[in-house]
Simulated scan of single mutants.
Amino acid sequence: MRLLINLLIISFLVVAGISYGTIWWGRGLLHDSGIPVQKSLFGNTIPQKVLLFFAHPDDEIAVGGTLNLLKEEGHELYMVYLTKGENGPTGDLVAQEQLGEARKKEMQKVAEFLGAKSLEILDYPDSGLKHLPIELFERVAQEMVEKYQPDYVITYDSTVGLYGHPDHRMVSKGMENYYRTNIGKVDFPVKQLFQVTLSPKQIQVALQLAPGFQRNYPKEGNGLPMPDFSIRTTPYFGALEEMMEMHATQQEVFRDLLPYKDQVPRYVYSRIFDREYFYKVRV
């Protein structure tokens, strides 16, 4: 019996050693040690209003861990999407002409899961925003800020759109322009605009593994903005997975966002893909 117990202990230690070694290796592959890790998006413990301003239902998944942290901290979430995402993949679950309404219902489930105070899904054309004037998105940004009076705003970046999506860029640029024009004014409520970004190491890995990045990430220019900080999200990985499942039609998209998730043990994966990166827009 003692020999069996010793063998079990040795086996456990070997497996644990392999797991921790994999985690250490994976973190080194994905994360830059020079980028600070913050405990929360902002230091204010008084409930704050946070506006999410995105192009498509499911764009929030890129910061799903942070959103669950904000929920846990008692902050208020207001979610605005400019399209229904009607031109995305269907997952063979609905007809293409039914996708917009299906994604709207999926997004409603996610908003309820996050305890969002409000959800608005507008009806601008999915994958057609690049044909609209930037002034339109500036006006929508103004309307939503005036309506919800947020303390903070989260968008994608305005130069790449995370992986090169023009819809992302247009929506984020509209909010950025409006923010830069009004920050510092007495009646402007927004304290900081945060843009979702990636670490340089994440970008390099994504360009090797993710077809969406390979197709769309710009070959020239500065690329994604350098992160100012990251948020550690391992405690919220389970909640993130639930949110992803609610977007049932978009599982193909998530394989780009979290490659090999189904092939790596969850304990290990949640500790490698363990943070979300943000850039603070400056005037």
Rank of each mutant, 00 (worst) to 15 (best):
G88D: 03
Y148Q: 14
M170F: 08
V253E: 11
W25E: 06
Q96N: 05
K173Q: 14
L136Q: 14
L67V: 01
T249D: 02
S19Q: 08
V80F: 01
V264D: 06
P235V: 11
E276I: 13
P225H: 12
N177I: 05
E106H: 02
I154H: 03
K147F: 06
A239S: 08
S230M: 13
S11A: 14
F254G: 12
L129Q: 01
A111K: 03
A95F: 14
R103G: 01
G221P: 04
R139Y: 11
L67D: 07
Q195F: 01
L67E: 03
Y81S: 00
V80W: 01
I23Y: 09
G212E: 14
L30P: 01
P57S: 07
T90N: 07
V14P: 02
P133I: 13
A206Y: 13
I231V: 13
K147Q: 13
I23N: 00
F237I: 00
E245W: 02
G26R: 05
L207D: 09
K130N: 11
K104Y: 12
L209F: 15
R180E: 14
M175I: 06
G100I: 01
A206N: 14
G28C: 10
D157L: 04
P227T: 01
Q108F: 01
P218H: 08
G128F: 12
T197E: 10
P189D: 03
I183C: 00
L82G: 01
P150S: 10
Y217V: 08
K117N: 12
A239D: 08
I23P: 10
T159P: 08
E73H: 07
E76F: 09
E112M: 05
Q48S: 15
Q96F: 02
L77W: 09
F237Q: 10
Q208V: 09
E252D: 11
W25T: 09
F53V: 09
M79H: 04
L93G: 03
K84N: 03
V63E: 02
V110D: 05
S11F: 15
I18Q: 11
E176T: 15
Y148C: 12
I61T: 12
S118D: 05
G100E: 05
G184S: 05
K105P: 03
D157F: 11
G238K: 07
P133W: 02
L51A: 00
M79Q: 10
E73P: 06
D123H: 12
T181N: 00
Y217E: 08
F137E: 07
W24D: 07
I121T: 05
L29S: 06
Y179A: 09
P150T: 09
K39G: 15
M144T: 00
D187V: 04
S172R: 04
M175V: 06
V50H: 01
A206I: 02
M226G: 00
V50P: 04
D59Y: 05
F53Y: 15
L82S: 02
K261S: 00
K219H: 04
I10M: 02
V268P: 08
I9V: 10
E120R: 14
A206S: 13
E242N: 14
G28F: 09
K185V: 07
M79D: 03
I9D: 04
V94E: 01
N222C: 00
L240Y: 11
G184R: 07
V15E: 06
N177A: 02
